Simulated scan of single mutants.
Amino acid sequence: MRSDTGHRLFLQRQRLAAARIGPDPDAPAHRALQPGQARLAIEHFALTANNITYAAFGEAMKYWHFFPAAEPGEGCLPVWGFATVVESLAEGVAVGRRVWGYFPAGSHLVVTPGRVNAGGFVDAAPHRADLAAVYNHCAWCDADPGWQPALEGLQAVMRPLFITSFLIDDFLAEAACFGAEQVLLSSASSKTACATAFCLAQRRGQPGAPRVLGLTSPRSMGFVRSLGCYDDVLAYDALTGLAPGVPTVYVDFAGNAALRRAVHEHFAGTLKYSASIGGTHWDALAAAGTSASLPGPRPTLFFAPAQVKKRSSPPPEGWGRDGLDRRLAQAWNAFTTAATGPEPWVQISHRSGPEAVLVAYAEVLSGQADARQGLMLSLA
């Protein structure tokens, strides 16, 4: 067996700040391929607040199950990135082909390709059979219409988040925004919130289109306002300045329980819907009582794969898979045009090596990462 031990990021599931870099269990030195398997060398991957959400909801949403860690209490952080097939005993999977997919934050991944076709393949490893299918698909880069080499960093950082944002917008539009006149987004500087605000803003001028409001930290207000997607941007402590009688939908990207309670209590009887999306404020997820005790509608976790499944179904409920892909591609192209303008929304920062990855993870976990920066990391 080869000597390449690779590297992988491991986290303590119950103490997310406890992180270490260890040998990658899927590297050539630690795992020989079995018939039907292939080994991917992970070239680089994005790290955003969305990955912190994966960790914060790792137990409830089974994110830890995708890439099991051998040590009790540890987990492998899921990320989105690019990899190359470096060994293959799987039919139809050629060495040298490049793929885009959902990987562990590491240097390697052994997959069991199934349903191999012109677009890519599904990782049919037995432990992934009952997990959300959207995360199990790997796309061939040379067959992906959304892949642009010059925008690869933007794709890795923003495309998975944008898909979630597109689906949130679609979900709210389908429900006529639950009769609300405004949508309030927490953690408004987070990339998923910004992309959601962009999608919502595309409806300006249409009958019933809601105003889009953002809550963020004082240091991020200038950046959030510069995007032009929000009708108003407020600091968290300015929440009470909003008129409490306006019918409102709350889209919670922060996951801060104290903030959620403040929003529910402020809008009381006029809060039409409360959607829980992320956990950027991961250290305050359970700080202010249970959701059951909140006034107004009970917060509902938005699970993007469920909306994908619904919209992939045939009409009238869905658009069919081709219809969903077409609408998503149109929205993504509009977003990339805006995000790569004279003042880019995201400035890609490349970092490599174990120490650099640990530092970057600590920055994102603590909320200290620059909102305009997109991190592309490598443990190769």
Rank of each mutant, 00 (worst) to 15 (best):
V122D: 03
C229S: 00
V183I: 10
C177G: 09
A243Q: 00
A129M: 09
Q155V: 01
A150K: 00
D144Q: 12
L161D: 02
A150V: 03
T164V: 12
G222Y: 04
A175S: 13
P149L: 11
N136T: 02
S107L: 14
A209M: 12
S190F: 13
N117F: 08
D232L: 15
P160N: 11
L109D: 04
V122N: 00
C194R: 06
W140N: 10
D142H: 11
V233E: 02
S220F: 11
L239C: 02
S107W: 10
F103K: 07
R115S: 14
L200E: 13
W140L: 15
P210M: 11
S190D: 09
C199Q: 15
F103C: 13
V233F: 04
D169P: 06
G241R: 02
L109V: 08
H127Q: 05
D144K: 12
A176V: 09
A195K: 01
L172W: 09
R219K: 15
I168F: 11
A197D: 04
R159G: 01
V116H: 00
A180L: 10
W147S: 07
E174V: 11
T240Q: 08
Q155A: 08
P104S: 12
V246C: 14
C199V: 10
L215W: 04
G146V: 01
P244F: 01
H137W: 04
D237E: 13
A193Q: 03
M158R: 00
V111D: 04
F198V: 05
V224P: 02
R128I: 08
V157E: 01
R203D: 09
A118L: 11
L215Q: 03
V224S: 09
M221E: 14
A118F: 02
F121H: 02
P218D: 14
Q206A: 15
C138A: 05
S186C: 04
F198W: 06
V111G: 05
A235Q: 00
H127N: 01
R204G: 06
A201L: 11
S190R: 09
Y102H: 13
R211E: 07
N117L: 10
G179Y: 08
L200S: 12
C138I: 01
M158V: 01
V212T: 05
T248N: 07
L213D: 01
A197E: 04
S217G: 15
V233T: 04
A129K: 07
A188I: 07
L239F: 03
C199Y: 09
A238Q: 00
D142I: 06
R115V: 08
A139Q: 10
L154A: 10
S220N: 15
S187H: 08
A176F: 12
R159S: 02
T240I: 09
V224T: 07
G214P: 04
S226G: 12
D170N: 04
P244Y: 03
R225H: 13
T196R: 01
V122I: 07
L200N: 12
C194N: 06
F223R: 00
C199E: 15
A125W: 00
A150F: 02
D231H: 13
D237R: 13
R204Q: 07
S226R: 13
L109K: 05
R159D: 00
G208Q: 09
P126C: 10
Y230V: 06
C194I: 09
C194W: 03
A129S: 10
L227H: 00
Y135E: 05
